[in-house]
Simulated scan of single mutants.
Amino acid sequence: MDLLQAIVLALIQGLTEILPISSSGHLVLVPHLLGWPDQGLAYDVALHVGTLFAVMTYFRREVVGMLGAWTGSAIGRRPLDGQALFAWRLVLATIPAAIAGLAFNDFIETNLRSPLVIVFTLIGFGLLLGWADRRAPEGRSELQTGWRDALIIGCAQALALIPGTSRSGITMTAGRFLGLSRIGAARFSFLMSIPVILLAGGYKLLQLALGDEPVAWGLMAVGMAVAFLSTLVSIHVLLRLVQRIGFMPFVIYRLALGGALIVIFY
């Protein structure tokens, strides 16, 4: 992998991890279309770390507050107030994806990383996102979610293991169906990405530590920095865009990309 490939893949990761258009789908498709070799596990870890740092930086006040509330309630030094309850609900929302990842990750990596699967998931879940956004009125904030909401959104997040689904897209879709506002659904999706990326990154780091794959530290540092900056930009853009006009631009993009892939591959 050369420097250009490293930068392009990092930009794609940073932009598409947050926008509801599927980072995994784009990271499968772009090397496939350009004839690039697989970037390797080490680089995937670097990109996810860059994305994680960006989300935590953008929502640093919320992260610090929730971490303190969650820790205090866990050790019995703080009552289960609104912030602590929200933090525990994010933990609950993480469990389905963690279980599904351990159970099905190898099968998905082997059998579902294909353009045909990505076409179906891009178009199908894109239409579902558009329907949810048009059907649901502006409603609750992310802090007004309950345990049932967190579990349902967490189960939806587990579907994002399938390439082309989009973790942010499917969780925002579930949030809108449950009556969250556009901003509430987006913020819940962003905040719940923190434990998920931590778990996924930790799992990949363990694979890396136990494997023999060589590590290009310079390219990893570049990828991490580019993913960090592009993720910050994409969070800002998404929050402003959905507040003004909703999720329809991303629905149109998913449908257009899915149609283009049908033309290219089939």
Results as ranks from 00 to 15, higher is better:
V91G: 03
L33N: 06
W36T: 03
A160K: 00
D149M: 10
L241Q: 13
I108T: 05
V251P: 00
I183C: 11
Q13S: 08
L27P: 01
R182G: 07
G175W: 03
L178Q: 13
Q83Y: 09
D133V: 00
L122D: 04
G76H: 10
P195F: 12
D133E: 06
F53A: 14
A150G: 09
I108W: 02
F250D: 00
I153F: 08
V45N: 01
P96F: 06
L255Y: 05
S22K: 01
V119N: 01
L80S: 13
V233I: 15
L161C: 02
V251E: 01
I194N: 12
R78V: 04
L112Q: 09
R176W: 07
I170P: 02
V119D: 01
M172C: 12
L9T: 02
I194M: 14
W217K: 08
F107N: 05
R77S: 14
S24A: 10
A150M: 09
P214W: 14
G164E: 01
S141G: 15
V196F: 06
R135Y: 13
I197P: 00
G184N: 09
A200L: 02
I95D: 00
M220H: 04
Q207F: 04
G201M: 00
P31H: 07
I235M: 12
G202Q: 14
L128Q: 06
L210Y: 14
F53E: 02
N111F: 15
G211Q: 12
L29M: 14
G175D: 08
P195S: 14
I194E: 11
A225G: 11
L19C: 04
G169R: 06
L261I: 03
L198E: 03
G218H: 10
L67V: 15
G130N: 10
S22M: 05
T121C: 13
G211H: 09
P137R: 15
R176Q: 08
A227L: 02
D133C: 03
A158R: 03
F104I: 05
I235C: 07
Q144G: 10
Y43W: 10
F104P: 07
Q243D: 14
I264P: 03
V237S: 10
F188G: 00
L80T: 08
A42K: 02
T165M: 02
P137G: 15
V8L: 15
Y253P: 09
L239S: 11
R89A: 08
A185W: 02
S181P: 14
A74V: 07
I7M: 05
S114N: 09
A93L: 02
I21Y: 01
V28N: 01
Q157N: 09
L27N: 01
E213A: 13
I18Y: 07
L178R: 15
R244I: 02
L206P: 07
R244F: 05
I252L: 14
R134E: 11
T165G: 04
W147S: 13
V117R: 07
I245Q: 14
P20Q: 04
D106T: 08
T231C: 11
A174H: 03
F107H: 10
G126E: 07
L34G: 04
T57E: 11
L178Y: 10
G169C: 14
L29P: 01
I162T: 04
V215H: 13
Q144F: 03
L161D: 00
L219F: 11
V64F: 14
F177E: 06
R182T: 10
V45Q: 01
A216E: 13
I252G: 09
G259K: 06
D2Q: 06
V263R: 12
